[in-house]
Amino acid sequence: MANNNVFIALQNNEEARPIIEAIEQDNAEARVEYAPAMVKIDAPGRIVVRRETVEDLIGRDWDPQELHINLISLSGNIDEDDDAFVLHRGD
């Protein structure tokens, strides 16, 4: 069962849609799965949510901390700063 997947789950709603789209744009290996009311995104090793990508999609300022509002769950280590929210395995 060796693997190094990380995942993030978001509510499936209007606010989360551009975030999901940004993740798809910036993470080529991300797999997006739709469950009732929820979207779960898996990727090997790393998922990054970039402020700039989201801002381009919604046309306004976006703080990566806004992610909290629609976040459901995640797995992996977190690194959060002004420009991105990153999930990763290892160091």
Binding site: A9, Q11, A37, H68, N70, I72, S73, L74
Partner: peptide, 20 residues
């Protein structure tokens, strides 16, 4: 229930991270 559940889960991500 879905709503309170998912709303709680958004806090839960912070809590899980504290655990790790």
């Amino acid at each position: 229930t879905v709503t309170f559940g998912f709303s709680a889960q958004s806090d839960e991500s912070r809590h899980m991270t504290l655990g790790l």
